[in-house]
Amino acid sequence: MESIISVKDVTFFYPGEETATLKNVSLDVYKGEWLSIVGHNGSGKSTLAKLLNGLLLPNEGTVNVSEYVTAREDDIWEIRRQVGMVFQNPDNQFVGTSVQDDIAFGLENFGVPREEMIKRINESVQRVGMEAFLNQEPHQLSGGQKQRVAIAGILAQKPSVIVLDEATSMLDPVGRIEVMETVRELNQNEGITVISITHDLEEALSADRVVVMKMGEKAAEGKPDTIFQQRDLLKSAGLDLPFSLKLSEALRRQGVELDRGYLTQEELVNALWKLA
């Protein structure tokens, strides 16, 4: 598989801190995949996200985005165009006074000509289903809608990677589904690589790959069905087991003879039905 982002031996200290927030982390992100990064508060996952598009630079090691390097000043604009970030708080990332101004702001920064700008704004709002809201002011939008506008702003810059830094954690369940469905479509239909920093285990379950961060180090990396079987690893990383696995365990304690732990409700219902 072709990697689009490559993190090599990265160590990172915040200024004035004695312990490293990231310790010797290496990681490849593959083109077109959905990678979830999970870990406890303070595990370094958000710091890692900010290193991916050069918002932070490593003290040691390198971060490459295709052939570009975040530490190289000449590369940083191209990297920021390619790797778009959606942050946690929907109210902190709206800069325009309307949806279209907000998206235009980002494009102006990249010097996109007006004609092209209008075309891209219209295209990108359609892709996130916000075309009816072009002239709306931010305060008239829900949290989920604001996050979709943030995503449209990124799309207008024709990115190859979208990084979601707990982008749905302040949203209600409806807003969460709205945003995740939008991103899933972009991932599946347009091949945009998605890196999702999240506490939502059910979301991580549907990722192609999962990275577990713990105390600034990469504790594990793999497919969700192998990662989420490792209860001790998850517990020690401050994470919980997904619902269906917890229920599988509880059923075994009740003497139900399941052959293994199941990750989704559907699989578990079917497995129980076969036992009946």
């Binding site: 509880a250 304690r253 009740q254 559907e266 129980l272 039905w273 009946a276």
Partner: peptide
Amino acid sequence: VQFLLKWNEKSGQNLSLSDFTIEELAKSLG
């Protein structure tokens, strides 16, 4: 409750829960 409803639909049973913990659900299914 979501899980219990899925099970009821599949099995044609009509189980219900006295509380909503995973332990209680496992007991009832067991």
